[in-house]
Design a protein around this nucleic acid. Structure first.
Lengths: 202, 202
DNA sequence: GTCTATATTGTGATAGAC
DNA sequence: GTCTATCACAATATAGAC
């Protein structure tokens, strides 16, 4: 593999990422990806054989962007409320850097549950550990007796939803203004934590 | 307009709804919609001229399914915490009946912000009233001093997120089991309220 | 209104020169 | 490795008979 080939491959992946994430797998056009990369369609097939494989490369890469933060929470030994304070800030920061990734991932998982869900289960299979840890803290009287799954989903939902619903939120609450919407997202890093804290602290 | 024509139109719309919501606008095929409706492609064009118009009919109808509940909250005179208790239950019930609608709407709004957002702004333009009402209750010391927009988005996010992320949640937390996932959703009607209550009650 | 047949365009993919 | 040219087929849309 020459330097040039790895370079071209990266350029293609970056272009594919942009187009797939913006338009979705079905909405994306190979031609548009080629244009975005400044090359022609034939090269896309030379490097990735077909649209499906190119999509899978983009999708997996996108999905894995969100796993490291989760791993930290699952593997940490610190008290839950302490861990998630950091998690929420980091997680929202990651999403601010990649605001369209959550919507992209969720949509593709919804319209393609068959082949994808199998693969991904392997990568998020230790959630039990976190559930157990929350249960222990409930036993210890540190956290209110709430189904840990509800807690986890609440945290993720509060972090992710503002980005998935971006167009409508930005229109309705910020008259389409970009800056005040960004400020709102930034504020959320502490807001979400306080929300969670007040609702689950025993 | 004869009885037959209104009937056929309804059949087409129902088929289109199913296919568009499952596959998205780009992923949907006119042929599949025709098959689903038990007719042929030509009739689709006879009734709706082209794919774009058929899609718009489905999309608007879908979007408006979620407006009545919101209107009730906005126009009610009762205390906020009282109103949203009913809202959350009703809203989650509506989504349980139409579990793929939120993901469909959010995805189409994201990949088509231009033409759609304009139309929809008109239909959700009185959110200010709700913001003002929350602010009054904050002044009265009934609710913690939190940006009302954060509160509203939290409520919507907690209701909607479990459905948008359905495939992954069902796999990770319920091993793909349908019944326990449904139970989880049903429990959420009270869980989400308690969550909100604890986090914003002064 | 509904159908079959066909036109027309879009789009993923390949062949072959350089 | 990269390009141009082209194929093959999928998908939207229309024409015209009934």
């Amino acid at each position: 593999m020459t330097d040039q080939s790895t370079n071209t491959e990266k350029i293609i992946l970056e272009a594919a990422r942009k187009v797939f994430i913006e338009k979705g797998k079905e909405g994306a056009r190979m031609q548009e990806i080629a244009d975005e990369a400044g090359i022609n369609k034939a090269l896309l097939h030379y490097y990735f054989r077909n649209k499906q494989r190119l999509f899978e490369a983009v999708f997996l890469e996108a999905f894995e962007k969100f796993l490291p933060q989760l791993k930290i929470v699952i593997e940490s030994d610190k008290p839950f409320l302490e861990v998630i304070q950091l998690f929420i800030e980091n997680y929202i920061n990651v999403i601010i850097e990649n605001p369209y990734l959550p919507g992209f991932i969720l949509h593709e998982l919804s319209s393609n549950p068959e082949n994808l869900a199998l693969l991904l289960q392997q990568r998020v299979n230790n959630m039990d550990i976190l559930v157990d840890k929350i249960n222990v803290e409930i036993q210890q009287g540190k956290i209110k007796p709430i189904d840990p799954r509800q807690i986890i989903i609440n945290i993720l939902g509060l972090c992710i939803f503002p980005f998935v619903a971006r167009p409508i939120i930005q229109k309705v609450f910020f008259s389409g203004d970009e800056l005040s919407y960004q400020q709102f997202l930034s504020d959320r890093k502490t807001e979400v934590y306080h929300f969670i804290y007040n609702s689950i602290k025993a």
